[in-house]
Design a protein around this nucleic acid. Structure first.
Lengths: 99, 99
DNA sequence: AAAAAGCACTTTGAAATACAAAGTACAACA
DNA sequence: TGTTGTACTTTGTATTTCAAAGTGCTTTTT
């Protein structure tokens, strides 16, 4: 048997970062409050996980306005997409070997 | 959109516990040293993750001998199988929504 | 018989991570 | 002017992770 977890990315061990990434894979741009509601976490907690993902260059930020309100949206980077897909493939492999 | 992570089990956030569970799903009995080598971790680390899984009643222990050497094997419980399958389904759903 | 090695842990301690809550900055609105 | 909303940052605590060392028991080696 082979190590079933060696290809998993440590960054995505966190359920919250996993959630952020899937949201951003499905929707090209998601704003801060949408993410916050979707995941049901506090803003501080969300901000810090987003920071981790930004520092890994998996996620990027766009600052703008809706009307006159500030609106910060997040989207996935090329590298983030690649890393996340690899992670999902590793998960699928693991799931496949189990079923 | 729905929260993609709400059905994930916190116990399985850990890559190592994930690895232990998949190993035990595929192989009915796995001994301590096999697990240790498979996952490439120290014995203390493995023991503590196994303890967490035992305390959740997801894994059970059998102590025996191979010849005259002690041999401890681990296997998954009914409850562990159920919980792990639910977790995998939640992962699959998440992956499905992404792909 | 004594020493060394193997197995399966437990304990210890340090580092990293997670998270809530409170605080901050800035613009808009009343 | 004061309050609200957005998007944070800071702070402090709790939890988790993990390696390393230590333990107890047994077998093997010398």
């Amino acid at each position: 048997m082979k190590n079933p977890i060696e290809n998993l990315n440590k960054i995505f061990d966190s359920r919250i970062r996993l959630g952020i990434m899937s949201a951003l894979m499905v929707n090209t741009d998601v704003n801060f409050n949408e993410l916050k509601e979707l995941l049901g976490i506090t803003d501080g907690n969300l901000a810090s996980h987003l920071k981790t993902l930004e520092e890994s260059a998996f996620v990027k930020v766009q600052k703008g306005f809706i009307g006159r309100k500030t609106n910060t949206t997040y989207s996935i980077t090329k590298g983030g997409e690649k890393a996340f897909k690899q992670h999902l493939e590793a998960l699928e492999k693991m799931i496949g070997s189990v079923k």
